[in-house]
Simulated assay, not measured.
Amino acid sequence: MSPTRDYWFPAKRYGWGWGMPTRWQGWLVLLAYFVMLGATIHVFGPDRHMGAFILVVTLLSLVLVGVCWLKGEPPRWRWGDD
């Protein structure tokens, strides 16, 4: 298997960042993120605990970006076919 096929998250074709997962591990990470996001909304609804809600959503999102950084293609600006 080539090294590029080991990435869980491929680079976006245009812009900076990652696209949708290409491996089951990436899909599992994305599913876990959305499940924990839903639990956060249920426990710390923005109408009840705005500060805690923002903190937890920020932390969850930072963890997701960290996983993408470690297990995705190296990020750089892309202009399409290159």
Rank of each mutant, 00 (worst) to 15 (best):
V63N: 03
M36R: 03
P75Y: 02
P46E: 12
V35Y: 01
L28T: 15
I54Y: 05
L31K: 04
W27K: 04
G45Q: 12
F34S: 07
W77C: 00
W24E: 04
L31Y: 05
H49V: 03
G19E: 09
G45D: 14
W18D: 12
P75N: 08
M20N: 03
P3R: 13
L60M: 03
S2C: 08
R23L: 15
P46F: 11
D6H: 09
I54E: 13
L62P: 00
E73V: 09
M36T: 11
W18G: 11
R78Q: 04
V67C: 09
A39N: 08
Q25F: 02
V67N: 05
P75T: 13
H42A: 15
P21I: 07
V43R: 03
S2P: 15
H42L: 14
C68N: 02
G38A: 13
P46Y: 06
V63E: 11
V29H: 07
H42R: 08
V43N: 03
L37Q: 12
L60A: 04
V29I: 15
V56G: 04
V67D: 06
K12Y: 00
G26E: 14
L28H: 01
L59M: 12
K71G: 02
M36Y: 08
A39E: 14
W79Q: 00
D6I: 06
L64Y: 00
L70E: 09
L28D: 05
H49F: 05
G17Q: 09
W24C: 01
C68H: 04
I54M: 13
L70W: 10
L37M: 13
F53D: 09
R23D: 09
D81A: 13
A32G: 12
R13Q: 15
T40V: 11
V29M: 12
G80Q: 05
G38K: 10
V29L: 11
P46K: 04
Y14N: 03
L28C: 12
M36N: 13
G38S: 11
T40F: 02
M50S: 09
D81T: 12
Y14D: 01
I54S: 09
T58Y: 04
Q25M: 11
R78Y: 00
Q25L: 10
P46S: 09
W27Y: 15
C68W: 02
M20C: 03
T4Y: 02
W27T: 10
H42C: 04
T22G: 07
F44M: 06
R48Q: 13
W8K: 02
L28P: 01
V65A: 02
L55T: 15
S2R: 11
P74Q: 11
M1W: 00
T40D: 15
F44G: 05
D47E: 14
L31G: 12
M36C: 15
F34Q: 14
D81L: 08
W24P: 01
G51I: 08
Q25S: 12
T58R: 02
D6R: 11
G66C: 04
H42F: 10
D82Y: 00
A11S: 14
L64R: 00
Y33W: 13
V57Y: 03
E73M: 08
W8V: 07
L55W: 12
W18C: 10
F53K: 06
L62Q: 11
S2D: 15
M50Q: 09
D82V: 01
Y33A: 06
A52L: 14
D82P: 01
E73W: 02
L64W: 00
Y7M: 08
L37H: 10
L70S: 10
W69R: 07
V43E: 11
M1V: 05
V57G: 02
G15R: 07
S61K: 06
D47H: 05
G66Q: 06
R5V: 10
